[in-house]
Amino acid sequence: MHSQSVPARFPPDVTMAFWHIEAGVHRLSRAAHHRIMVHASAATRSYCNEVGRYFVRRAGDIDLVPAGQEGGFETETPFDTIEIALQPALMERVAAELGGKARALPLDTRHLLRDERIQHLARALESDLGANSPSGSLFADSIGAALAVRLLGLENSDVERTNRLSNAQLKRVLEHIEAGLHEPLSIQRLSRVAGASSSHLRAWFKAATGFTLHRYVVRRRVERARALLRRGDLSTSEVAELTGFAHQSHLAHWMRREIGQTPRDLRRAQPK
């Protein structure tokens, strides 16, 4: 993992770094500051160890990691991200100035936020960093305070939680799919598992994973079939049956589409 950090001209309360993340498994260690991670690449599919689910991050998607929290993820492709670090002392000062509930509310880990205000503030900070005549610490201070206000406001609102599956809902659906790859899976059945209407589940599932329900199930069936074929102790027809495909040709068709290989190709590639 490579980074390019911001010069020291920013005040200690708010700093920015640019990260290039290589494909593979990564561990996000605990930090003394709050981290706002703004995705700066095209759509990137990754698996989050913390919640046990796949995410598809697109340019502008935001992850919030509070101070003291750690995490881990596996990304399928390299990507770039912008990290803004806010010190807890800044958050406490802003919360005290706001008064009310803000002072007592802790920050929660959040994934895939779409927030225009945070994106605008991040772009402003990034632009100031790249300018030949930067605005100075006063500008960065104001950006940091504005970000703190917004984050405290997010914890008082469920706006970003609407129109998407909760972690618990998505986890139930994914686990049900994994357990039922060998049998027919209907949208009605998965809707009951999720506790959502079929139309909502279709839209929310794609927003969370980047795949339609059908394509995700097919992909998992193909991945399971590939693993079984590599074992070498089952016939192709047995593998097709165990992974929910109607017959060998059905399995071969989808394997060719998803991974560019047929069962015969896999068997030929196996060491003798």
Rank of each mutant, 00 (worst) to 15 (best):
H2F: 15
H2D: 14
S3T: 12
V6C: 13
P7W: 08
F10E: 06
P11L: 07
T15N: 14
A17T: 14
I21C: 10
G24V: 00
G24Q: 04
V25C: 12
L28H: 01
S29N: 10
S29L: 04
A32W: 10
H34K: 00
M37E: 03
S41Q: 08
Y47M: 12
N49L: 05
E50M: 08
R53E: 13
F55Q: 09
R58K: 15
D61T: 07
A67R: 11
E70G: 09
E70W: 15
G71D: 12
G71Q: 11
E74H: 11
E76G: 11
T77M: 03
A85W: 01
M91A: 06
E92L: 13
R93W: 09
R93Y: 00
R93D: 15
G99Y: 06
G99K: 03
K101E: 15
R103H: 11
R103V: 15
R103T: 14
A104R: 13
D108L: 07
R110F: 04
R110C: 11
L113E: 07
R117Q: 10
H120K: 13
A124I: 04
S127I: 05
G130V: 03
N132E: 15
S135K: 09
L138Y: 00
G144R: 06
G144K: 00
A145E: 15
A146Q: 14
L147P: 04
A148I: 04
R150S: 01
L152T: 04
L152H: 06
E155L: 06
V159C: 01
E160Y: 11
E160W: 12
R164C: 01
Q169D: 10
Q169F: 04
K171N: 13
R172E: 12
H176F: 09
E178H: 10
A179R: 13
E183V: 12
E183R: 14
P184K: 01
R189P: 00
R189T: 13
L190M: 14
S191D: 10
V193W: 04
S197I: 08
S198K: 10
H200F: 12
L201W: 05
W204P: 06
F205R: 05
K206H: 14
K206L: 12
A208Y: 02
T209M: 11
G210H: 08
F211Y: 15
T212L: 05
L213V: 11
R215E: 12
Y216E: 02
V217Y: 09
R221F: 05
V222S: 05
R224I: 00
A225T: 09
L228F: 09
L228N: 09
R231K: 14
D233S: 12
L234K: 10
S237F: 02
S237R: 12
V239W: 02
E241I: 09
L242R: 15
T243G: 01
H247Y: 13
H250K: 10
A252P: 03
H253F: 13
M255P: 02
M255N: 03
T262D: 07
T262E: 03
P263T: 06
D265M: 07
K272T: 13
